[in-house]
Write a protein that binds this DNA or RNA. Structure first.
Lengths: 338, 338
DNA sequence: CTGTTAGCGCCTTCAG
DNA sequence: CTGAAGGCGCTAACAG
């Protein structure tokens, strides 16, 4: 018998030696090349089993040119249900193609996002899907990333030439706000997102447009646009409602704000109507009526993965900067009987 | 000037040519080797900038021996808040070390889990953290994975020699069930998980032990142990409560079952007490009192990442099969005033 | 201080 | 049908 196998992973050479063939025959066998004698083929497969050999895909990819079979995803926080669904959709599509997904949290930190993108490019991931945190997208330009394809999710590209999958932020917000107005609310508060973000400005636009369409005016004192977490959303909602002549309804620009607003409203005597962007999976369990702007976050992820894969395959239309919009749907959760 | 740059990523050779030095000087410069003349160093850095060069980390890792800087994580479904928190904890720790995380969903399918593990090993990921779906762990044995370190989360290893991070499934369930008993409930239903899983059997054990300690008997007709989703949990809860002489309280073995039980209870006239494993982030918003077994899923992830990294660094104690238990805490959400 | 040689693990090309 | 040579991009080890 030969000496003890090396402690590291066995290599193709080890298998070849064990099977008394050349490494090439091993390579061919592992690729199901029909031009290998059944006899040798068997010997190789036996050696593979005996040694617990596993082809080094990274080395293989190096030789084959590129393609690590890895898709990079940069999101704010995987624990946010929206991003979790997005991730699910991406993973499902990648999986169909035998690709794996590298997830990284940017924590809404632009500098960190920049580092991650750079890291992904250095690792030669086949493509990148990002939910950009800020409005500066230079670091996401494929031209600056050795040509790594990029697709943006939930935000259109700013001065770079990449595809994007978007939500109907404006339309969804407009519709939900209009519904509040139709129910007789003339003073409607707004818990928004930072104005510097696409999502933040679009949802605000939808809110403002709905008010204006009804002949109402936006009152700045009813608007707060910077609640980074649920606690801050509670505080902002409370502050808005504590004013003289307070709003009779609130629109919350995302799930965190909706939960915060809900908590704030719940602890008060007066009834305040509530609508918000992002569905909640427990929306029907709450004891206040709630209107939500719902959409298929998983589909958003699926489409983003599809687009980036088209670029990876060079199937994508040349210079096009596609923008696909995932529709939103307003759902009215009536108060359940207690 | 030289001819047009190759369309693919520029290589170290390209940079060397551009800067009129050898590839080694480029290599050294990029590694901040002090033994490079400031002059040449500058020339190299200029060329890097001009060409938009980025060192190929995969090729580098190949040459350096191993270490892809990638950590593999296999979980059932990233959209489940428990796994999302776990993922967050892992990602946070990996990130500190400059490592990236490859997430894959097993969908609770053992065959799929096996494929993913094999895929991770073939890609030479530095380590694997898995929440195993079934009780068969042979495919997770590092010995069969070219030595790739493995750490299990939420389930102890079965016949393989790896570290694990666990929850106090038994203790938490015992305590919460005992609390229901102390409140006068003598007939308590149980919505469980498949008995074949560690979590499923331990939580059942905790439930049964609490009943027995109080001189009560487990009634099989109050027990259902296979609800794969919320809808099934609603159905099982309803079935249990629709019997003659029904339970006055339910224990739900995880978040899905708790939500299902909640929905079922809510639609009935009689009051039924509810306790469940896994905290819900909206627990305090519900309009029924709820007891939950809470724990820090993020910490669980952090510790798992820590353990696997110790193996990657060869810092881990030799043959030890460590089992670290994350404590649970029972929280009593009283009914909020409507 | 810098460049040459050699090779990580694998695969394409081209002879046998 | 099989093997030998060469190289993917990078870097230790060794000359100069």
């Amino acid at each position: 018998m030969t000496a003890a196998e090396p402690s590291g992973s066995p290599t193709m050479r080890d298998v070849a030696d064990h099977a008394h063939v050349s490494p090439m025959t091993v390579s061919r066998t592992l690729r199901d090349d029909p031009s290998v004698t059944p006899e040798k083929r068997r010997r190789v497969l036996d050696a593979v089993a005996a040694l617990g050999y596993r082809r080094n895909e990274m080395a293989r990819n190096l030789r084959l040119g590129s393609s690590t079979g890895l898709l990079g995803v940069i999101i704010a926080n995987i624990a946010n249900p929206f991003y979790a669904q997005l991730a699910l959709g991406i993973e499902a599509h990648a999986d169909k193609r035998g690709m794996r997904v590298v997830f990284a949290n940017s924590g809404e930190n632009p500098e960190r996002e920049r580092q991650l993108v750079s890291d992904f490019a250095a690792r030669r991931l086949d493509g990148i899907i990002a939910v950009p945190t800020a409005n500066q997208h230079d670091h996401l330009d494929p031209a600056a990333l050795s040509g790594t394809p990029v697709v943006l999710a939930a935000s259109p590209p700013h001065r770079i030439n990449v595809d994007a999958v978007l939500l109907d932020d404006f339309g969804g917000t407009y519709e939900a706000t209009s519904m509040l107005i139709a129910r007789g609310h003339h003073r409607i508060g707004f818990l928004g997102l930072p104005a510097a973000t696409w999502t933040g400005s679009e949802r605000y636009r939808g809110y403002a447009a709905a008010l204006e369409a009804a002949g109402l005016r936006v009152e700045d004192r009813y608007v707060r646009r910077n609640q980074p977490d649920v606690a801050a959303a509670v505080a902002s909602a409370t502050a808005i409602l504590d004013q003289p002549d307070p709003p009779t309804a609130l629109f919350a620009a995302n799930n965190r704000n909706t939960l915060g607003a809900y908590r704030a409203i719940r602890s008060r005597a007066e009834t305040v109507a509530l609508a918000g962007f992002d569905d909640l999976d427990v929306a029907d369990l709450l004891d206040l009526p709630l209107i939500v702007v719902s959409y298929d976050a998983r589909e958003l992820g699926r489409v983003a993965a599809e687009l980036v894969c088209e670029h990876i395959d060079n199937t994508a239309p040349g210079s096009s900067t596609r923008r696909i919009v995932i529709p939103t749907k307003v759902i009215d959760y009536q108060q359940c009987p207690s």
